[in-house]
């Protein structure tokens, strides 16, 4: 699924690095715990999280994540947005809860990471 399609499904707004619409997302992982994100391979995966800070970006960088959904209507600050651009990570802001975002994406065919 393309990044722009994900954004549309969850009524999200694209911020951070421009979305690469050649990038195909096949799996998702939902976690506020960055320690857990670091445990898994995140190829072709979107991270869904309510943790909205620079550490979300640094963890995504180390995990080779290209797209992160920030749920629960959390608002990234300027510093986080700059870091996202610098690290080439697209953010999708959504006012929906993590559960709702996960349910919508699962229903649309995105697979769980495990």
């Amino acid at each position: 699924m393309k990044i722009s399609e994900i954004a549309k499904l969850i009524d999200g707004e694209l911020v951070g690095a421009p979305a690469d619409d050649t990038y195909e997302v096949r799996k998702a992982f939902a976690s506020d715990l960055m320690s857990d994100v670091l445990r898994f391979s995140m190829e072709e995966t979107v991270l869904i999280t309510g943790l909205c800070n620079n550490q979300t970006m640094r963890t995504s960088e180390m995990s080779d994540l290209r797209v992160v959904v920030i749920g629960r209507d959390k608002q990234p600050d300027e510093e986080m947005l700059e870091l996202a651009e610098e690290l080439d990570i697209t953010l999708i802001k959504s006012r929906y809860s993590i559960f709702k975002i996960s349910g919508i994406l699962y229903g649309a065919g995105i697979e769980p990471l495990y």
Binding site: D32, L33, M34, S35, D36, L38, R39, L51, N53, Q55, T56, T59
Partner: peptide
């Protein structure tokens, strides 16, 4: 609160 401190650090380093 930063998203760390779950006790996964050293095991993950070993892995």
């Amino acid at each position: 609160e930063m998203g760390y401190g779950a006790g996964m650090g050293l095991p993950n380093i070993k892995k």
